[in-house]
Amino acid sequence: MLEVWDSNQFFLDLQVPVLVRYPQTPNGVLLVNFDPYIFEVIKESEYMIKMNLEIPEAAKILVHSRDTLKAHASQMKFLLDEDKALRAEIPPIFQTLLGPSLKRVDSVIRPGLISHTWTSLNLPTYFTQVKEALAELQIIVKQISDIKTTRIDLMLKEISETLLCDLPERNPLTVSEFLQKMEEYTDQMAVDINKMSQVVEDAVKELVRIFLQRAHLEQSLLLESGASSDRSEIICKLILLDL
């Protein structure tokens, strides 16, 4: 295989973006853009080195970069899997409300589709940025999921299962006794339901506060990013004028 192996193709395979979007899926699923053939070349090159056979210079570079390439490919796949799993945990009702936070993650991942290749020196920095963005999203998803599960869904379930009439199981009651007992029981149930309803209301208000806070934060980051881009453009124009 190495006799016909093109060293130029080796560099081309490593200079592609680390991510690719699969167009046949509805949302364009992201995939790690790494040719497994490269690892086959590494394996064969290692065998030939052990046999004291001469291999192309490009193959030597490939063998030398083996551990780094494997680590980067594994790290990229891990981050994509984590992103997919995290999005699957988001309750459907919150998908739209978490739009700004999801767009934030998408914007951090996007350079992997355009500018970051397997030979990029800043690839570890890119991985760190994606990891931090996912960690931030995970905190938000856990927070809203806990609120929905424990303070909304559970309370609504208890309210739906609350009996509004306490019928006697053994001893019969007179009409007046029954009415008095029902009045006392319904009064107590009204208090309990009101407390549970208040818990639900407070939880909804907290969710609204969280979503608004995230939306304002993402908007501020977007404006800051736009201002930074404008400053960079102005600096470039000034440099060109000086030239």
Rank of each mutant, 00 (worst) to 15 (best):
Thr119Gly: 02
Leu154Ile: 03
Leu173Gln: 09
Pro168Gly: 06
Arg110Phe: 11
Thr150Cys: 05
Pro100Asn: 09
Thr162Ala: 14
Leu102Asn: 09
Arg170Thr: 15
Val141Trp: 03
Val130Thr: 05
Leu167Glu: 14
Leu137Trp: 01
Thr125Asp: 15
Leu97Thr: 01
Ile147Ser: 01
Thr162Cys: 14
Pro172His: 13
Leu154His: 06
Ile144Leu: 11
Lys103Cys: 15
Glu169Thr: 12
Thr119Tyr: 10
Phe127Thr: 01
Arg170Ile: 13
Leu163Trp: 06
Ile140Met: 10
Asp166Gln: 12
Cys165Leu: 14
Asn171Trp: 09
Ser145Trp: 04
Leu134Asn: 03
Leu97Lys: 08
Arg104Lys: 14
Leu167Gln: 15
Pro111Lys: 04
Thr162Glu: 14
Asp166Leu: 07
Gln143Trp: 11
Leu121Lys: 14
Lys148Cys: 06
Gln129Phe: 07
Leu154Trp: 04
Tyr126Gly: 04
Glu161Asn: 12
Asp106Ile: 09
Gln129Arg: 13
Leu164Gly: 13
Lys103Asp: 11
Asp153Thr: 06
Leu164Pro: 00
Arg110Ser: 12
Asp153Ala: 11
Pro172Phe: 11
Leu154Ala: 15
Leu97Phe: 04
Leu154Cys: 07
Ile109Lys: 02
Ile159Met: 14
Gly99Thr: 10
Leu137Ile: 09
Glu169Gly: 10
Ile139Gly: 03
Ser160Leu: 11
Lys131Pro: 01
Ala133Thr: 07
Tyr126Pro: 00
Ile144Gly: 00
Thr128Trp: 03
Asp146Pro: 01
Trp118Pro: 00
Lys142Cys: 08
Ser115Thr: 15
